[in-house]
Design a binder for these strands. Sequence first.
RNA 1: GGACAGGUGGCUGAGCGGUCAAAAGCAGCAGACUGUAAAUCUGCCGGCCCAUGUGGCCUACGGAGGUUCGAACCCUCCCCUGUCCA
Length: 390
Amino acid sequence: MSHTSQAGKVGLDAALALPEEGPASEGRSPEASLPPATVPMVVPLVVIVGPTAAGKSALAVALARRFGGEVVNYDSVQVYRGFDVGSGKLRPAERHGVPHHLLDIVEGGQVFTAGDYRREATSVLARLRERGRLPILVGGTGLYLRALLQGLFEGPQRSETLRARLRGIVYRRDGAFLHRILRRLDPTTAARIHPNDTQKVLRAVEVCWLAKQPMSGLLARDRDDAGHPCVGGLVGLPGYRAIKVGLDPDRAALYQRINARVESMFREAPDGQRGLLDEVRSALFGEGPEASDPGNETLGREVRRAGPRMGTGVRKPLEALGYRQACALVRGEITMEVAVRDTQTATRQYAKRQMTWFRREDGVTWFPGFGDDSEVQRRIAEWVGNRIKN
RNA sequence: GGACAGGUGGCUGAGCGGUCAAAAGCAGCAGACUGUAAAUCUGCCGGCCCAUGUGGCCUACGGAGGUUCGAACCCUCCCCUGUCCA
């Protein structure tokens, strides 16, 4: 099941390797069960889950200081450089010297996916293991966390060319038509995905097409390309024992915090620091590699017709909560009041979705309250301390 | 004081004699989620009841009366709100 850190890494990389490589072309002979000597020690890994604004980041820092850990981000917006205030990144001073990983690793114009995340995160974890540091995962993107902990099935990466073609179909016909195509390619998966969920239908068609086999088949595999056993096409994260902490603050209190936080994000920062609007302005109009933005107008129209899409010229993080509204505000399309209100609402809804996702995450121990409350920190630290020992 | 326009479920807003517990959107609640995920999508959404259904009952379209077999929709009066004229 497990491998040494080196072997494990290689194995993972192979497992994650992408479509170009032929199926059985591996030179390595699959070692389904490695000799015990090379099996790595199973090390603990702390995971913090919970809705936005619950104080996860503060808790992470507190735990890191207490247990000699380092923070590893699993938030899909915080990975972007230059998107700090709006994504709720801890400011350097608030990190109290604790190293943070996987922040600011992508430029605004670049696409970053769950697969990319898994690749980056596994290598960070390997490095921490070598240094004997306790990894503390914090963030809010359930899919990224799952991609890391459980793995992703071995399927093709997204292909912009194919997607462009498929989108053309959606354009000319409709989403339901694409779903009918999927039904022919892979009835099992088609049954699982609602015809209106074009984004997921599109991905499924892409997978079937590129892999030249039904996606449901890939999901049912019990052995990965390298011959290692896996479940449902997932290779998991061998060598780690996840200790999962969930923050479960009072709903009304959380919503109040969200409202207040959003409000202050939109206000110009008093102490000369960059605020949300500054971030948006520089992402939109200049400074930085992603300054010029030719095809944006045309794309805007496409976006409206075919739903939010990515492509050249569109910066993914600008579609994120708060940034989207801030853009509209900077362009003069909405007022400050509306921008704030919309962002507050959208953020509350996001928090709700996170709760739905994390509620069904396996093995989470939930704690009431906020993560920046010292009493809550103390209780959780005590509990985590016990879990690390066993 | 006069002339119009209007008052509909938490909000916006359709409906203008029966098929209306009342379109649609928003908000809210619940859920799904395997490479865009701070995304995308689904269900529920006046109350109560048998909880099987193209089910039953109650309360609802500013208030009070009236016309009608039947009214959110028509008439009368009253109370509010907006615009205009004084």
